[in-house]
């Protein structure tokens, strides 16, 4: 009996170690591949120049078009999604509570979260056809915002739910309205959670290829108008890796590396920022 329990304990420890190795190992493998293939092709020119020599198959130049394009797309989409989802999240928490309507909205958000991004792309494309908008920065922003909306709403909803109800009650008991309580207490208390939600959404947005495929198009130029096509890093990887030219493929690896670095930097900044913002938060 005693030996059996020891064996059980041993086996369990082994399994936990194994899963840890698998998780960390695959992360290392991905990062390693990106570095190994991307680092040699990463140069100053790659980061500061747009591709030269005819459409995106030219061999000279860099990926600045895709870097700036992706930042504009994901930045714009995150801003738009944030503006739309903040009222929804506040409504869910302070006004709807656990009513049927709130339940339905949460369910809808979960379903939306699970929808593949190519479907968002197609959806946004249909709308663009209706309103006569061609593949453009604006189109891409709309598609990505749809993709990011459920992520931000659910993330904020969870952040609000972690707040003890006694804190809102303390505000209500002083004669505050729901709106005052939401804007002056809840937003402040949930800042770290809100920031995490926003950055999660930004990361998903900047890394997504399928939803910008039809909606944002691709170009060698830097973005200069909301109504013109823009390049993006995921599509830079997708198009350029598919060409038979090693010099063009190199740009794909560099783009992949840059994308990874952007997302990693963001999560580090987010952590630092949320610690700063937690100054007044009640724990």
């Amino acid at each position: 009996m005693k030996r059996l329990r020891r064996l059980e304990e041993y086996l369990f420890r082994f399994l936990m170690g194994l899963s840890l190795v698998i998780v960390l190992g695959s992360l290392m493998l991905i990062l390693g591949t990106m570095l190994w293939r991307g680092l040699p092709s990463l140069s100053l020119a790659m980061l500061t120049q747009v591709p030269k020599g005819g459409y995106y198959l030219g061999e000279e130049g860099g990926i600045l078009n895709a870097i700036v394009g992706s930042l504009c797309l994901a930045g714009g989409a995150t801003l738009l999604a944030l503006l739309l989802s903040l009222p929804v999240a506040i409504y869910l928490h302070t006004y709807a509570g656990c009513s049927r309507a709130a339940h339905l909205v949460r369910l809808a958000m979960d379903v939306l979260w699970g929808i593949p991004s190519i479907v968002y792309g197609a959806f946004a494309f249909t709308i663009m056809l209706w309103i006569g908008l061609r593949a453009s920065l604006l189109g891409g922003i709309i598609a990505l915002a749809c993709l990011e909306l459920p992520i931000i709403v659910r993330g904020m909803d969870e952040a609000f739910r972690l707040i003890p109800s006694a804190l809102s009650e303390a505000s209500y008991a002083l004669g505050a309205t729901r709106f005052e309580t939401a804007t002056r207490i809840l937003l402040r208390q949930a800042t770290a959670g809100l920031l995490t939600a926003v950055l999660l959404a930004f990361g998903r947005g900047i890394g997504d290829a399928a939803s910008v495929l039809f909606t944002a198009g691709y170009t060698d130029r830097l973005p200069d108008s909301l109504l013109r096509p823009v390049a993006s890093l995921p599509l830079a990887v997708f198009f350029q890796l598919g060409t038979p030219f090693p010099a063009v493929q190199q740009r794909a690896y560099a783009a992949g590396l840059v994308l990874t670095v952007i997302v990693l930097t963001l999560s580090v900044v987010a952590r630092w920022l949320s610690r700063r913002l937690m100054h007044h938060v009640v724990r």
Partner: peptide, 15 residues
């Protein structure tokens, strides 16, 4: 709620 104040059992300072 302005005319009737509340002191709860566990203090919850606002953030």
């Amino acid at each position: 709620r302005t005319r009737i104040g509340l002191l709860a059992s566990k203090p919850f300072p606002l953030p």
